[in-house]
Design a protein around this nucleic acid. Sequence first.
DNA 1: ACTGAAGGCTGCCCGC
DNA 2: GCGGGCAGCCTTCAGT
Lengths: 94, 94, 94, 94
Amino acid sequence: MGKPNDKLKAFVDRIERLEGEKDALSADIKEVYSEAKGTGFDTKTIRKLIGLRRMDAGKRQEQEAMLDLYMAELGMIADTPLGQAAVKAKQEAA
Amino acid sequence: MGKPNDKLKAFVDRIERLEGEKDALSADIKEVYSEAKGTGFDTKTIRKLIGLRRMDAGKRQEQEAMLDLYMAELGMIADTPLGQAAVKAKQEAA
Amino acid sequence: MGKPNDKLKAFVDRIERLEGEKDALSADIKEVYSEAKGTGFDTKTIRKLIGLRRMDAGKRQEQEAMLDLYMAELGMIADTPLGQAAVKAKQEAA
Amino acid sequence: MGKPNDKLKAFVDRIERLEGEKDALSADIKEVYSEAKGTGFDTKTIRKLIGLRRMDAGKRQEQEAMLDLYMAELGMIADTPLGQAAVKAKQEAA
DNA sequence: ACTGAAGGCTGCCCGC
DNA sequence: GCGGGCAGCCTTCAGT
């Protein structure tokens, strides 16, 4: 008869297969970093750079815009001169 | 002229390529879990199971033994009769 | 005039005050673990132990039972003889 | 006699005590958010704001400065007009 | 009630 | 070998 627990086994197998491939990729990445380091680059900084690029720039700016309002209400000095101007304009409008 | 920073770009590209593939695999894994859940399995338990399988059997038992020992020292009831016996033996040996 | 944004500031202040205290406690906890480590205890095991104690006893057994069941379905050797017996009983009941 | 396992118990007690206090604070924080929401504020945004304030502004800028260099090498358009100018200057200097 | 997201926590890798 | 920094996982929270 068809065993019902075969389904569980199938799921586990698929997951482990995929995780194995993931591990292989991690190893590859590590190797690239190692190679970069050998060429004189600072791996830590490269990691940071990759992280930044990964972050969708658009969404980041959107969030900042949304927050400036609240910052202004708290009397915080916005990060940029531009931001300060915007804050000022908003206060005058209020 | 040959630009030296092309090397950096090449490294970054390679890494990002690999990370992209990794992300794809993560998505696949997530999907399998979702499918398993739809079939009635408890994903949390499956995750635990996968983790256990990944861990070397010897180390696993070693960890559990230590946990049982600590529980015994606190007067907690150990998980298993076997564990309790082991703990008792250890205490007498001490 | 009474500024409406003062209310926001008050909320933020209260939250940040509380979070500060929380951070202090986290630091204290970390310190205790560190001290325990210095006395020869295995911090990882202690963490596990604390987690178990935190969890309701009933739920804990329920989770372990499910894990054992899944392991049995995969043909893995269950952690404990007791667990194996329980699994067997469950399978026959099904 | 003094039991050696009393030490373990003492550590566990201290940790659990501290965690209890931490949980109480978390509950307090949650309550403040709830109150703020009742006053018409958007809790999600407040959370973001708190997170931003938490981040040490100085360190953040320091990191960004350190990274602009690498960004420039990749030909990425820096976030700000100021950044672009800086990049341009650097390229001309090269 | 489930899904997606955010923050906190754990394990891993690197440098000291 | 240890401690710090970073990525991944898990849990909790808002939204649907």
